[in-house]
């Protein structure tokens, strides 16, 4: 058959190029820091890196969905905090069992996502504004609900184990992160949600004209992002053994940075979970490595900022060549 002959792997190649570039950068960083300091490539330190990636990583996984639609969710950082506070309310204030606390945290995140999604998809409020508002609302609510004080999980020692319990010295949080990455990746590549996610980011109007219920699917995607923020909140609370209502601002930007370093396009239509995982790892390897090299913390931030810009520029160069 004629059809069988025209096998063009071009599409796969170009998509892989960006991941390869990001992956190569990650390896390069690891090699560089390993050579620069004997303290870097040690089991403890590598686990430390993974652990510090976990929370931001989970936020970034969720953000990947919204960013592929061409939208943005600025609220994930404070939604995360709000979810951790709500988990604290359920477990510590109300004294309910831990699983209900977890459900409460995830539902809180999902509900915030639902509201953002509804504002964006149904009320046509630009994602930047809708989620900026949600960011402020949840920031305030965290303080209101908690009475501006941290909520501790001292009566339920099992809660801290959720993230910090270990198998073979590896904390659960690391497994949760990679497990969620696998799930997110399957959702994005194998399910109808993922398909419409890319379709929306690629050409929303065409998707609508093809008879797809754009409003519904968009809301679903914001709900997913919110639910991931909820999970991140529970992990955060477990790790700190407390819900810290003042934490969380700025996390959304780190999550977005990880997504972008991973090659997901802010204009929508392109991106991958593997890229986001690599992006999140690059960020924490960089921070960790710079700290080991005794680079002052204020300079670490400067360098990470430059890396974000560099990563996006590399992406633009690659596209232009094409």
């Amino acid at each position: 058959m004629k059809l069988a002959e025209v096998r063009k792997p071009v599409a796969i190649k170009t998509g892989a190029a960006q991941k390869l570039l990001a992956f190569a950068s990650l390896i390069l960083l690891v090699v560089f820091f390993s050579l620069s300091s004997p303290n870097f490539f040690r089991f403890d330190n590598l686990i430390g890196i993974m652990l510090s990636t976990a929370v931001i990583g989970v936020l970034a996984l969720g953000s990947t969905f919204v960013i592929i639609t061409g939208g943005i969710d600025l609220s994930v950082g404070t939604v995360m905090t709000f979810a951790s506070v709500m988990t604290g309310v359920v477990i510590t204030f109300w004294g309910l069992p831990i699983p209900l606390g977890i459900a409460g945290g995830i539902l809180t995140g999902a509900l915030c996502g639902f509201i953002s999604g509804w504002l964006v998809a149904k009320m046509n409020i630009p994602p930047f504004i809708a989620t900026l508002g949600m960011m402020m609302v949840t920031k305030g609510l965290s303080l209101v609900v908690s009475g501006t004080k941290p909520i501790y999980f001292n009566d339920t020692p099992a809660f801290a184990k959720l993230a910090m319990g270990t198998v073979l010295k590896v904390p659960y949080a690391v497994f949760i992160f990679f497990g969620l990455a696998v799930i997110a990746s399957i959702v994005l590549s194998k399910t109808i949600i993922g398909r419409y996610n890319f379709a929306l980011g690629s050409n929303e109007e065409a998707t609508r004209l093809s008879g797809v219920n754009v409003t519904f699917w968009k809301i679903i995607i914001y709900v997913i992002t919110g639910a991931f923020a909820g999970i991140a909140g529970i992990m955060m609370a477990s790790r700190l053994n407390s819900a810290q209502p003042a934490l969380g601002s700025g996390y959304e930007l780190e999550a977005i940075a990880a997504v972008v370093i991973g090659g997901t396009s802010l204009s929508g239509g392109q991106g991958s979970i593997l890229g986001t995982v690599i992006g999140a790892l690059i960020m924490s390897v960089l921070t960790n490595g710079l700290r080991i090299l005794s680079v002052p913390q204020e300079w670490q931030v400067v360098i990470v900022g430059i890396v974000v810009i560099g990563a996006v520029y590399a992406d633009i160069l690659r596209r232009r060549k094409k």
Binding site: E205, A206, S210
Partner: peptide, 24 residues
């Protein structure tokens, strides 16, 4: 009215994708 980041087949059957046994 096409979605440039999707494949040819994905474009043609957008909104009517053949489903697998598992929901979604």
């Amino acid at each position: 009215q096409l979605m440039p980041d999707l494949t040819v087949a994905q474009n043609i059957f957008i909104g009517r994708e053949p489903r697998a046994a598992l929901p979604l």
